[in-house]
């Protein structure tokens, strides 16, 4: 058990520390790298909980796909760090005010939070240990009980994808390669052999 607790505190501490670094790092690329570290350590926490499927999906989706594209964009930004620091003092009062209001609101919400007495009964029965792997367990609820919600989530993602394509698709005059046309082209279509008589041009 000691090893598990040590691992938990290690993952949790690194997650928190890198979370803080995400917002405090000067360089945005460093921020994204710390964000990736935070994702990675949360995956470690999932493994400790015994949710290895969720841990792997977290790494594949967030670290392997989302954060790569994020890093891709941030790397290409041309940022002047001196200019960034200039604005800091002017925006500090407004930023501090917004932060303060948020903290007060959060305290009000969390302070009045009470768990409903029947909430514990609403949660689904956990699978008996050893009877199912958690991949199968998730599959069984996802494709039966939550089937419509699952499909709706897929549809929402599809709409987002179509939206992104619509926003970026422009029909500019770009020379595109048409492999079919290239392959079907015969010598007769483009070449003409002429017999040039000596002493006169064509």
């Amino acid at each position: 058990m000691i090893v598990q607790s040590l691992a938990f505190y290690l993952f949790a501490a690194v997650t928190l520390a890198s979370g803080v670094m995400v917002i405090s790092a000067r360089n945005p690329v460093h921020s994204v790298l710390f964000l990736i570290l935070a994702f990675f350590n949360s995956a470690g926490l999932f493994v400790l909980l015994g949710a290895e499927f969720l841990a792997m999906i977290l790494v594949v989706v967030y670290v392997g796909a989302v954060a790569v594209l994020f890093l891709f964009v941030v790397m290409m930004l041309d940022i002047n760090f001196a200019e960034l620091r200039q604005g800091f003092m002017t925006y500090l009062p407004v930023g501090a005010l917004v932060g303060l209001i948020l903290v007060v609101e959060l305290l009000l919400v969390v302070g009045g939070w009470a768990v409903h007495p029947t909430a514990a009964m609403m949660s689904g029965a956990p699978t008996a240990p050893g009877s199912l792997t958690n991949t199968e367990a998730i599959g069984q609820v996802l494709y039966t009980r939550y089937f419509y919600l699952f499909q709706a989530a897929g549809l929402i993602l599809l709409v987002a994808m179509v939206g992104a394509i619509v926003l970026t698709l422009r029909h500019r005059e770009v020379r595109r390669q048409s492999i079919g046309r290239q392959v079907s082209r015969r010598a007769g279509d483009t070449l003409e052999v002429k017999d040039v008589p000596t002493g006169s041009g064509i």
């Binding site: 690329v29 790298l33 990736i36 290895e52 499927f53 792997m56 999906i57 790494v59 594949v60 670290v63 392997g64 796909a65 790569v68 890093l71 891709f72 790397m75 792997t133 958690n134 991949t135």
Partner: peptide, 23 residues
């Protein structure tokens, strides 16, 4: 149990070494 997902996850991380080196 999730061996193949682990392989897929690790191979999808491989891009970071390259991107970080280039940047």
């Amino acid at each position: 149990n999730v061996g193949i997902l682990y392989l897929f996850a690790i191979s999808s991380l491989g891009v970071y070494g390259v991107v970080m080196a280039g940047w």
